[in-house]
Amino acid sequence: MKLCTTIQEMRQERARLGAVGFVPTMGFLHEGHLSLVRRARAENEAVIVSLFVNPIQFGSADDLANYPRALERDVALLREEGVACVFAPEAAAFYPEGFATQVNPEGVALELEGPSRPGHFAGVATVLTKFFNIIQPQRAYFGQKDAQQCAVVRRFVKDLNIPVEIITLPTWREKDGVAGSSRNSRLTEAERLQAPVLYQALCRARDLVQAGERRRAVLETAMRDVLVQAGLTEIDYATVVDPETFQAKETFTEGALALLAVRLGAVRLIDNMPLLPVP
């Protein structure tokens, strides 16, 4: 396995590989990331994984500084998974002095996480556009946990005619239902015990839909009730939207996605669950 830390090294290594599956990550890998790697290995001649904490998608310096990092451990895990190449550039070289261009998505990027995290999706779209240009993968793999991000990526890849297939895999969860996230490592012991409540709230909405409920207001109230009763009151949103536009409707007959963003102490967690399929 090759570890590339510069764009030049990455391009030279890419030239030696065939069809590539790309898994973009910010490191501190968990089983969810590794499930993406395994799927990529099954569908491509070679797999490239990025380990890059992207500074331009963070809203605060504290959040960036506190994001967990474990480069040596991550590299060892990826070597065991048979990854062909790891790309771990330095931020100063990736965004050199004078860097002044961003990809600024609109549409779905203006909903939910857009107002909650100004500039976040522009940072995501910019770093991924750079990665896609440097690596030129045939396929790129993402987890459903970041559902809105996946929708943003599909949109800008289509709009900008970037020749990469975007593949989204179901959210990987711990045994208690908590969605896999590098941020989980920052939870205190007490907060980690509370974290499954997000999944329980989503399951409550799913159960109501399976029983015939289609009114957004009822589903949102049910999710909030589960969260508040468990002591989780810092709720950015608990809502149901169309999974393609991320806009809310009064009632849903098809294509419904429940989403949560909740703060536990210093950590903001997001999760989601499809409730009705897109026709």
Results as ranks from 00 to 15, higher is better:
6 T>L: 10
10 M>V: 06
16 R>V: 01
32 G>Q: 02
33 H>L: 01
38 R>F: 03
38 R>I: 09
43 E>D: 14
45 E>K: 08
49 V>C: 11
50 S>I: 09
52 F>T: 15
55 P>Q: 11
55 P>H: 08
58 F>N: 08
58 F>S: 10
62 D>K: 15
67 Y>N: 05
68 P>W: 13
68 P>S: 08
68 P>T: 12
72 E>Q: 14
76 A>M: 15
78 L>E: 06
86 V>C: 10
93 A>E: 14
94 F>E: 00
111 E>N: 11
116 S>E: 13
118 P>E: 05
121 F>N: 00
123 G>K: 01
133 N>Y: 07
137 P>G: 01
151 A>H: 01
160 L>C: 05
161 N>V: 14
168 T>I: 15
185 S>M: 08
186 R>Q: 12
187 L>V: 09
191 E>T: 06
192 R>M: 05
193 L>T: 09
194 Q>I: 04
194 Q>P: 07
206 R>W: 14
206 R>P: 13
214 R>W: 03
215 R>D: 10
217 A>M: 07
221 T>R: 14
223 M>P: 09
224 R>T: 13
232 L>R: 04
233 T>S: 14
238 A>N: 02
241 V>H: 07
243 P>F: 02
245 T>S: 15
247 Q>P: 02
250 E>K: 12
252 F>E: 05
269 L>C: 04
271 D>P: 07
